[in-house]
Computed example of a mutant assay.
Amino acid sequence: MDIGYLLPTRDQSAAGEHDLGRLVARARRAEELGLDSVWAGDSPVTRPRADPLLLLAAVAAATERVAVGTAVLLPALRHPILLAHQLATLDRLSDGRLIAGMGAGYPMPATEAQFAAVGVGFARRGARLEEAIEVMRRLWSGEAVSHRGEHFAFEDVRIAPPPSRPGGPPVWLAGGGPALARVARLADGWLPYPPEAAAYAAERTAIEADAVRPVTPALYATLCVDDDPEKAHHRMRSSIERYYNAPLEFVASVQAMFAGTPRDAARWLDGYVAAGARHLVIRLATDDHDTGLEEFADRVLPLVHKENDR
């Protein structure tokens, strides 16, 4: 099992801080602390933050071992030729450590406004995502590609350099419910955030029944830890409501979140491990991300590994 760390790009931007070097330093520290992957989110308009691909290029240059991933990228906002080129270059820079986490975009007014701002129809974002994945995988072959689809059309296009790995980086897809069929058809990995481990187990089973290729079951989870559970809950509310500009109760109803002691947090994560999760991507809800990363690595990470090794 692997455990990764989500760089706090949105938290830093929301606080009016724009020192990207601090994010790269946290990625290096995550590697030193024994984490397996470092991730960056994508939302140029709805929740503005540093561009994930440019940031992860710097992270790839500053690290040696950790996987670098997008959690998650929104391909429907971009043309697949340009995105395939960027991802192939990033895979080269990272020596094949890239995980291309992707999603269609959560249906809410702010997300619709983001698509409108860049001139992309929101209603067809799912179909646009699927076509983009097909196009990018063909372009990653290094061969000349011609394509005529519902959303994109071009003739005799070749990108260079090709990705470090034949076939390109693994594509992990977010989503549950109706999106599970897309995961089973197209994905190399699954990166959802269901609020209950039982729901995770049921959806993972559904994917495995229909998958056309091996799918790595992952989890995107938010933690806030403190020896005082009440303080942890208070910090979780403050962090999440600042991040999403929405009530904690609503966000927690759709996302995997836990606030409490380090030991209880490890037990909560272990519920998802028992449900089949094999790569945990952890977002920390905290006001001090440097201290939060150290505390997670020191007080939660060893317990999760201990629980998983039983």
Rank of each mutant, 00 (worst) to 15 (best):
L83I: 05
L98D: 01
P44S: 09
E31L: 08
D91Y: 09
V72D: 03
R65H: 14
L55G: 13
S43H: 11
A50N: 14
L83S: 12
V45N: 09
A61F: 02
D51I: 14
E32F: 02
P52A: 02
A50L: 13
S37Q: 07
A61C: 10
H79L: 03
R29E: 13
P48E: 14
D91C: 10
L83K: 09
E64K: 01
L54H: 09
L73P: 08
L83M: 11
T89W: 03
L83R: 10
D42L: 09
T70P: 01
I81E: 06
L87I: 10
D91F: 02
T89M: 09
A62Y: 05
L77Y: 14
R49L: 09
P44I: 13
R49W: 12
I81P: 00
A67F: 08
A67R: 15
L33A: 15
A71K: 00
L33K: 11
P75L: 02
L35R: 00
P75T: 06
V59E: 11
L73D: 06
L98F: 02
A71Y: 04
E32R: 12
G34T: 00
L77D: 13
P75N: 08
A84I: 04
R47S: 15
E32I: 02
R78W: 03
G34H: 04
A58V: 12
R49F: 05
D51M: 10
G41P: 01
A88H: 03
E32K: 09
A61K: 05
A57H: 04
V72N: 06
L54N: 12
A61H: 04
L33T: 08
L93C: 08
L35P: 00
E32Y: 05
E31R: 02
L77I: 09
W39M: 03
G34A: 05
D42I: 12
L90A: 06
A88N: 14
L56P: 00
T70H: 04
V45T: 13
S37P: 00
V45F: 14
G69K: 13
